[in-house]
């Protein structure tokens, strides 16, 4: 849409991330995707959790909500239920979504509410200065694991396949064009979309660096034989690791979304429904 200036999602305030942080690429990709989709800033509601990446809602010009550690998904769900004419997007860190907030993560996928959830997955706790996260590799030495992580990391893509997410993708902060495409597809998708994003944390994660990812990532959807509607194929791809890290859309399906399952929302978003003239006479009569 020509009428929308490219700069309209640019914020007044500027990010305070460490120079070189992968979050800059993500922020760029988000703004570009929103712009290319022709969305207007006042129709976008951007919810974030708490962490380095979660500050992004301050730096994208849209209605924003920077919330609590791990709680952005219920909040985004409430916002979408309250006004489903808004485009609701959500972002949080790997600690935020796969650690403290993992219960909400699984249930939101099951619910298939129409929103995009991005996880800036830097495999570390950035904002609290470098502790292990649920996606930190086994053996990784961090401030909270000076002798190496002993737990097996979470596999977010496999988890999402199992939990009923209807759009499951992985991006890389170092490939903005590809990530922008994923974000656009995720927003266009009707239902819950997950994009797990490899995000170098240049300050605290010295293992999963730009170079590390550049050597390993390959684009899943470049393979014409890969079908995104095949759950089992997606499951297999989700198990790949080590030297080969697929990025792209793993899986996508169409399923009834929450907003369609609730007839209360069919006529118009809840927020625009009249509350000044509710007639409770019939209710009171039931108690006679």
């Amino acid at each position: 849409m020509a009428s929308i200036k490219k700069a309209s999602f640019d914020s007044v305030a500027k990010p305070d991330w460490c120079p070189g942080c992968g979050l800059f690429g993500i922020q760029m990709a988000i703004k570009q995707a929103l712009t290319e989709l022709g969305l207007e800033p006042h129709k976008v509601f951007f919810v974030t959790g708490i962490g380095c990446g979660s500050k992004a809602s301050h730096w994208v010009n849209a209605y924003g909500m920077h919330t609590l550690h791990g709680r952005s998904l219920p909040i985004a769900t409430g916002a979408k239920l309250g006004n489903h004419s808004l485009t609701v997007i959500d972002m949080g860190g790997d600690g935020d979504g796969y650690g403290i907030g993992i219960g909400h993560f699984m249930h939101t996928m099951r619910r298939n509410i129409d929103l995009l959830y991005m996880v800036n997955d830097n495999q570390i706790y950035g904002l609290t200065k470098g502790q292990a996260s649920p996606t930190s590799e086994k053996g990784m030495k961090t401030k909270s694991t000076p002798f190496g992580v002993v737990e097996t990391p979470i596999n977010p893509i496999a988890l999402a396949i199992n939990s009923g997410a209807t759009f499951i993708a992985r991006g890389f902060a170092g490939d903005i064009v590809h990530l922008k495409w994923l974000i656009m597809e995720g927003i266009k998708h009707k239902g819950f979309s997950l994009i797990d994003i490899f995000q170098p944390c240049v300050t605290f994660n010295k293992i999963n660096t730009y170079a590390y990812f550049q050597q390993r990532v390959y684009k899943l959807n470049d393979d014409p034989n890969y079908k995104t509607n095949d759950r089992e194929a997606a499951w297999k791809k989700a198990q790949e690791g080590g030297d080969k890290l697929p990025i792209g859309i793993f899986y996508q399906e169409t399923r009834e979304i929450e907003e369609e399952a609730e007839p209360q929302l069919l006529k118009q978003p809840l927020v625009y429904q009249d509350i000044k003239n509710v007639n409770i006479e019939p209710l009171m009569k039931k108690f006679v």
């Binding site: 219920p74 909040i75 219960g103 809840l270």
Partner: peptide, 24 residues
């Protein structure tokens, strides 16, 4: 026309309604 959700826990319950109230 009230949406009623039995959500996964009380943390979700209160945060869900905060999100809803935030949009009015």
């Amino acid at each position: 026309n009230v949406v009623v959700k039995h959500v996964e826990d009380e943390i979700s319950a209160i945060n869900t309604i905060i999100g809803a109230s935030a949009v009015g």
